[in-house]
Computed example of a mutant assay.
Amino acid sequence: MLFCAIEKTGSTFWKRILHIAGGWRNVSNPTHIGLGEAYTEKGGYRSMKGKNWTNIVEIFSKTRSVIFVRDPYTRLFSGWLDKFYSPNIYFWKSAGKQIVKRERKTDVKCVYDVTFAEFVNHTVHNVLSKPCIDGHFQSNYLHCLPCNVSFDYIGKYETIKEDTMHILDAFKLSEKIKFDDFEKDSALDAIKDAAGWVFSQKKGVAECEVSFGCALFKVWSRLQSRGIISFKIKFPFKSDEDVRNVTRKQFESALKNAYDGSDSEDLQNSRQAALVQALSSLPKSSVNLIQQAFDLDFEIFGYDRVPIVSINPTNFQTFSYFQNCPPF
């Protein structure tokens, strides 16, 4: 199997699948491999780094190949949620600084409140004007060059469960790679990762002069936006004192309890509602630029150029998904 990884399309998840397929670690469920371990090249898969184009084309001719792609609108939204809304000190200090310098004409060392509209304007400008930008935001097709080489399987993030199962079955890996409960495994994996990540960023958050309560709240809100925690369940910490004493395990436990207490129908609609709210913040000019910047992604992979603009029930529209800090 040859897999071409595209950031923000489930690539980390699939790297863990490849480790198991290649016989690394005595596990069958990909979520039992740590997210950090997914990137080691000493496990079950090998990288094609350093190979020239002739080598790559030859490998393609002898190997069945797989990529996963994603709708440009949701991929941009996911990139903003993970790298700018949520605590990510590297992006707050690098790209965040560049964005506010361009959008607000201000120069600060660390930016924790980049809006989705600011991020989109900056990103589409870079896509349209620069040959190489951060891979999390670059076009799907530029990662894997599907116009130059032919892929046997093109999965879509929107149907990742069904497409993953189909591909595993095609490669006769269904008995080797198994899930206890695909949706629940994915949700608990995301919760564990979110809790571990925010505590790893604690020192940097303080250096950015952002309260840790704000950082935890952003993680909570991000998981609401992803449809892992219901929008009806409030942030459980009521004061700076509560946050000051909370441990990573306690925060992870609070996230799991919120997931367990969430209504499944709320979760199904919450993710789309958050996306609609984010897209609704964009002026028409920004949507037009997205369509220009990702024109080939829309065309090649069959995605709709017109974004989602409404959702029912209406009570989702009154909830604000992207507040910066808790109300204390």
Rank of each mutant, 00 (worst) to 15 (best):
T9M: 01
T12H: 06
I33E: 08
G34N: 11
K49T: 14
K49S: 14
K49G: 13
V57W: 04
F60K: 01
S61K: 03
R64H: 06
F68L: 00
T74F: 01
L76P: 02
F77A: 11
F84Q: 12
N88K: 00
I89K: 07
A95M: 13
G96M: 02
Q98K: 15
V100I: 14
R102E: 09
K105D: 05
K109N: 10
C110G: 00
Y112M: 07
Y112R: 14
D113F: 03
V124C: 01
P131H: 12
D134N: 15
G135D: 10
N140M: 13
Y141S: 13
T159L: 09
T159S: 15
K161M: 12
E162A: 14
M165A: 10
M165L: 15
H166T: 14
I167V: 15
D169N: 15
F171C: 04
F171N: 05
K176Y: 03
K176V: 08
K178Y: 06
F179V: 07
F179P: 08
E183I: 13
D185H: 10
S186F: 11
I191W: 09
I191E: 07
S200Y: 10
Q201K: 08
K202V: 07
K203G: 11
V205M: 03
C208T: 04
C214D: 12
L216N: 08
L216D: 07
K218L: 03
S221L: 12
S225M: 14
R226A: 04
P236G: 06
D242Y: 09
V243T: 09
T247I: 00
S253I: 08
D263H: 10
K284M: 12
S286K: 12
Q292Y: 09
F294A: 02
F294N: 03
D297C: 06
F301N: 07
G302L: 03
V306Q: 15
S310N: 15
F319V: 05
F319A: 06
Q323H: 12
